[in-house]
Design a protein around this nucleic acid. Sequence first.
DNA 1: GCTCAAATAAAAATCGTTTCTATTTAATCA
DNA 2: TGATTAAATAGAAACGATTTTTATTTGAGC
Lengths: 147, 147
Amino acid sequence: MDSDVAEYLRQLRMKVTPKRLAIIDILKKESGYLSPEEIWRRMKKRFARIGLPTVYRNLEELANGKVIYRITHPNRQLYYFYCGNSVHHHHFVCVACRAVNDIEYCAIGDLQEEVRRKLSGRVVSHLLQVNGLCRNCLKKNYKGTWR
Amino acid sequence: MDSDVAEYLRQLRMKVTPKRLAIIDILKKESGYLSPEEIWRRMKKRFARIGLPTVYRNLEELANGKVIYRITHPNRQLYYFYCGNSVHHHHFVCVACRAVNDIEYCAIGDLQEEVRRKLSGRVVSHLLQVNGLCRNCLKKNYKGTWR
DNA sequence: GCTCAAATAAAAATCGTTTCTATTTAATCA
DNA sequence: TGATTAAATAGAAACGATTTTTATTTGAGC
Ligand SMILES: [Mn+2]
Ligand SMILES: [Mn+2]
Ligand SMILES: [Zn+2]
Ligand SMILES: [Zn+2]
């Protein structure tokens, strides 16, 4: 359970430090995305000394290693969430409660096809994020602006 | 040609100022996206006095009015481009030369369907951007990192 | 032309993020 | 185990893209 993560970190040639594990644990327990500062606040409950730059650095490294992911937020600040799903997929983000859920559908095949046929170009990466209101926030009739 | 823009600005209740028109004109003439500072540099060739905050403010307001659009860049800074296509579509962005081309294909119907069926949620917006190398940069064998 | 809200210039501030440097720690191996 | 060493960290400082502020100018309506 936690040893998967440790093993995965070793594969990435990253040291298995208590703070790294804690950051992953915090994100695992959260259903939605968090900002570096929010993660830092939670870290301060677990560690007497923990610097904000450490949180930033680890978040970036973990995202590089695909242990965690970023969402694209209209305020253009950084937000991260944990996702253990290793097959290609995208995300449905609740703009009210910040919950992140997997979306299986991806039309990259058709997109590549159109780029090749009409533009003679080559697709290198793509970004698909679906935003909206999750089941719960829909029930609560949340007036949806981004959080 | 330029009066379309003026008319459209009036519809948006925005004053038709020379600087606003110049910003749109600069973006229209560009095949790719530009940063606020790059637009400012071009503006300084046309106006003796032009402040960077004016450029920022106008870019945001024009984007709100859908006269221009943003791209999502990995460095999380602001970039804008002009697009006159008024039907729903997405963009293919060349990471080498910054060219932006329209993509017609959009699977929003299927995505909404999946969100409703599997998550009982409601889609409010979606973000689809395809990145890669355009025809020309492919020819030049450009080693593609983002610009 | 006159009026007034909107737009602007210029300077300053903001603040999320990154960099720097000395210190600590995890991993390796004797 | 203890020594070694590169990676990780704390804390302070810097950074810089973007935003705010205030006085001045300008476009639109009459
Ligand atoms: Mn996922
Ligand atoms: Mn377009
Ligand atoms: Zn995909
Ligand atoms: Zn779409």
